[in-house]
Amino acid sequence: MSLAPLLEAAPAIPLHAFAAMAAFVLGLVQFAAPKGTLPHRTVGWIWVALMVVVATSSFWIHGIRLVGSFGPIHLLSIFTLVVLPVAVWRAHTHRVTDHRRIMIFIFTGALVVAGVFTLVPGRIMHRVIFGS
């Protein structure tokens, strides 16, 4: 495993990748930790900020192009940027079930499922993890 392919990429790519990895780890912490506490809210705000960085930085990554220079990752990013404030608002208004459902959906869809696609041969993260 070598970070060289990631660190040699255009600046948006390592920013995107490191923010996504940090959001993934913090997301796991959030799922395991007690809910409704000050640490949960603090880590939650950091997670939301990281997800905004992940989603926003994707607009400078154009590896898969379907319409012009945009691909499916950009649709997911738009969705994430729209739904994140809704999830935060649901927590703020004590609609915890909705908040939990939306956050789980964002975590699994925007981080886990999209993250798996970064391991496809030919992608930078494939070279980082598998070295080829």
Rank of each mutant, 00 (worst) to 15 (best):
D98Q: 15
G68A: 03
W45I: 14
R95G: 04
H92I: 03
M125Y: 03
V96E: 13
A49Q: 05
G71L: 00
L75P: 00
M125H: 02
F24Q: 02
L81P: 11
T37E: 12
R100Q: 14
G63R: 09
F79G: 07
F70A: 08
L3V: 11
Q30H: 05
V120F: 09
F70H: 06
V67E: 07
A91P: 10
I73P: 02
S57Y: 04
R65V: 04
G71D: 02
G115F: 03
S58F: 03
L38F: 14
S69T: 11
V112R: 05
F107I: 04
L119R: 03
R123T: 01
F18W: 11
P72W: 14
L6P: 07
W60G: 00
T108Q: 13
P5S: 09
F117G: 12
A17Q: 05
I73F: 15
S58R: 01
F70N: 01
G115Q: 09
G68R: 03
D98C: 00
A19H: 04
T118V: 07
V83K: 01
F59M: 01
V128I: 04
V128Y: 05
L75E: 06
M51D: 03
L3G: 09
F31W: 14
A17L: 06
L66F: 13
V82C: 11
I104A: 14
G109F: 13
V52K: 00
T108Y: 12
H126M: 03
M21G: 12
M21R: 08
I124R: 07
M1L: 09
G115A: 04
P14I: 05
L119E: 00
A55T: 00
I64F: 12
A55G: 07
G63W: 12
A19S: 13
H99A: 09
I129V: 15
A33V: 11
F107Q: 07
V112N: 09
F130V: 04
A110H: 04
L15H: 01
A87R: 08
L38P: 10
L111C: 13
G63D: 14
H94R: 15
H94F: 14
G131Y: 05
V48A: 13
W89K: 10
F18S: 01
F18P: 04
S2F: 10
V112E: 08
V25I: 14
P72I: 15
H62T: 13
V54H: 04
M51Y: 05
R90G: 00
L66Q: 11
V25A: 12
G36Q: 10
L26W: 05
F24R: 02
A87L: 09
I102Q: 03
V48T: 07
S58M: 08
L38A: 15
H62K: 11
I13S: 01
T80D: 04
V86M: 10
A32M: 10
F59G: 01
F70M: 11
I78S: 02
F105R: 09
M21L: 15
I73H: 10
V52Q: 03
H74Q: 08
F107G: 06
M1D: 06
I73Y: 14
F70S: 00
V112W: 07
R100N: 09
A49W: 08
